[in-house]
Design a protein around this nucleic acid. Structure first.
Length: 564
DNA sequence: ATAGGGTTAG
């Protein structure tokens, strides 16, 4: 920037033809706006001094303002100003840049209007604009609109496909992402490194280990360089598929490791129940002089929470504050979780009271779970009141409170909660589990019998139920409605989605293949018990990833040591 | 005379 300022000063001392001056200033403005070494304030000043600003300078400014650290809607305002002035005329670059800006700040309405204007101006057929539109709608989580924009692209290159695939990943539609990749291959478009990063993320989200392994092998076959992004995605994928050994291998082979991949590894170890290893990795990270950030500490603190390591948790909490990281909601969440799991609900409440910002629903929910586990009815009711006031339309809250009342035999209050839920027309998020078989991810919702192989599935489920009962297991019925007859209660538990997915795994795979399940909610106590028994009587290793962590069931025991 | 779309950790 120092040299640039000198050049700028020299230009101003000379008498130059206006077009030359304009060109020189526009180059200076572009550098200041776009280079990582630039200075957006300087760019704005130079831009305002350019005689006859042409479209190049406008485009640089629009793009530059969206590249800064905390982008605002400034690019959109610049664009509006440009349109209002009527000169110079926006081109396809302008639309691509401003749409990108809208995607960064998720300015949905603004982007929609720009889309309309773009079609009117005849730039709807530019492949760059088309891809920018797909990206914009996907980032705003309007995935249907993104898909419509994608479908309208006549010639799709790998960038267009990657955009749509990453869009699906962004909104959690992992199976759709995997399906689109198959289509991409059918269409004969070669995936590149960026496509594979999104694919690996999709596999991580879906728990699709076999496809993930395939992508890894494909990468090596095509000699696609394992760069930082790809390696990080792989570490994450293996860890989130319960293959922590493979995750470690990829991690150790990396020549350069940044904060993100260290954090990935730490979180991966933590969710796999390897708390000590996660803390050990954190120590190595410090030795390697890689600076931890707020995400790293989320991993470290959650490792402490899952391992029940209270004093360590406080120690890392202090060291986080010392290193100047402001505790975020998630950090408080980890600490509250840690304290509640250890039965220190009062301490958790004190911490929440000391928070500088108002607690979010996650914090209240964690506290409520803590109160439930420790049967603290009065405290729990106070917490529940806060939670329902903050989030009156979330079914999960009512179900949690209802189960809380059930666990302390407060049947009257329990039915009141259910009634309130019904009155408000709130529907529970259905439990959903998936399993990957032969390269396809099969999804099962609770009590859903729409799977094509439903008859065989029913047979296995019956077999499981009988053998589990013979084994001496008694379902814990207060977890379900108390006002139905006992038999019905048991069958409702039998139909929890993970049971269906496990049954499908038993049907479709043979020992010693591991049965890997991904669940969208946390496992209930009964399912946890039953899965332990299944692992023993069917002699199969079963790995369940629930919403928070892994359970590895082997020969009747679980890696979480019944602490989750 | 000048430039561009898709990617990694909670």
């Amino acid at each position: 920037m120092r040299v640039l300022r000198q050049i700028h000063a020299r230009i101003l001392t000379r008498v130059l033809p206006i077009s030359t001056l304009s060109f020189a200033l526009s180059k200076i403005a572009a550098f200041c706006a776009l280079s990582p070494l630039g200075d957006i304030y300087y760019a704005r000043r130079v831009f305002s001094l350019i005689p006859n600003q042409n479209i190049f300078s406008w485009n640089s400014m629009i793009r530059g303002c969206s590249l800064i650290e905390n982008p605002s809607r400034e690019p959109v305002y610049l664009f509006r100003k440009l349109v209002k002035r009527g000169y110079p005329c926006p081109n396809s670059f302008t639309f691509a840049f401003v749409l990108k800006a809208c995607s960064i700040v998720t300015a949905f309405e603004e982007g929609r209007q720009i889309h309309t204007r773009c079609l009117r101006s005849g730039f709807g057929s530019s492949p760059f604009v088309q891809t920018a539109l797909v990206n914009f709608y996907a980032k705003c989580e309007h995935i249907g609109l993104a898909k419509m924009a994608f479908d309208e692209i006549p010639e799709r290159n790998s960038v267009a496909w990657s955009t749509m695939i990453s869009g699906y990943v962004k909104v959690g539609l992992f199976n759709e992402a995997l399906g689109l990749f198959r289509e991409m291959q059918k269409a004969g478009v070669e995936p590149d490194g960026v496509t594979l990063v999104s694919m690996i993320s999709a596999c991580a989200g879906a728990g699709a280990l076999d496809i993930g392994r395939w992508v890894h092998a494909y990468m090596e076959k095509q000699m696609i360089d394992a760069n930082l992004e790809l390696s990080t995605a792989l570490v994450n994928m293996y860890a989130r598929c319960g293959c922590i050994e493979r995750a470690k291998e990829v991690f150790h082979e990396m020549p350069v490791k940044d904060t993100k991949v260290w954090s990935t590894m730490i979180v991966g170890l933590a969710v796999n129940g390897l708390s000590e290893d996660a803390l050990e990795a954190f120590a190595r990270m410090e030795e390697a002089k890689v600076k931890p950030n707020h995400v790293t500490f989320v991993g470290v603190l959650s490792a402490c929470a899952h391992g029940g390591l209270v004093s360590e948790g406080w120690r890392y909490w202090s060291s986080m504050l010392e290193s100047g990281i402001e505790p975020s909601m998630e950090h408080y969440g980890c600490m509250v979780d840690l304290l509640c799991r250890a039965g220190l609900v009062h301490e958790a409440c004190n911490l929440v009271e000391d928070m500088a910002v108002p607690p979010d629903p996650v914090i209240w929910r964690t506290l409520l779970v803590g109160c439930k586990k420790n049967k603290m009815l009065d405290r729990g009711e106070i917490v529940a009141e806060q939670l329902l006031e903050l989030e009156p339309l979330n079914a999960e809250n009512y179900i949690l409170l209802s189960n809380f009342y059930a666990s302390v035999s407060q049947w009257e209050k329990k039915s009141q909660v259910r009634k309130k839920m019904k009155e408000k027309g709130i529907k529970a998020v259905p439990g959903c589990s998936s399993i990957e078989v032969d390269g396809f991810v099969h999804e099962f919702a609770m009590g859903d019998w729409s799977h094509p192989e439903t008859e065989e599935l029913a047979k296995i489920l019956k077999d499981i139920a009988e053998r589990v009962r013979e084994f001496g297991h008694k379902p814990w019925i207060s977890n379900v409605l108390h006002n139905v007859v006992d038999e019905e209660k048991e069958s409702a538990l039998d139909e929890h989605s993970e049971r269906l997915a496990i049954a499908y795994g038993l049907l479709k795979t043979k020992a010693p293949a591991v049965i890997r399940i991904v669940k969208n909610l946390r496992v209930c106590w009964d399912c946890h018990e039953v899965t332990k028994i299944i692992s023993k009587i069917y002699e199969r290793e079963i790995i369940v990833r629930d919403r928070v962590r892994f359970h590895k069931f082997v020969n009747g025991t679980c890696s979480c040591r019944d602490f989750w």
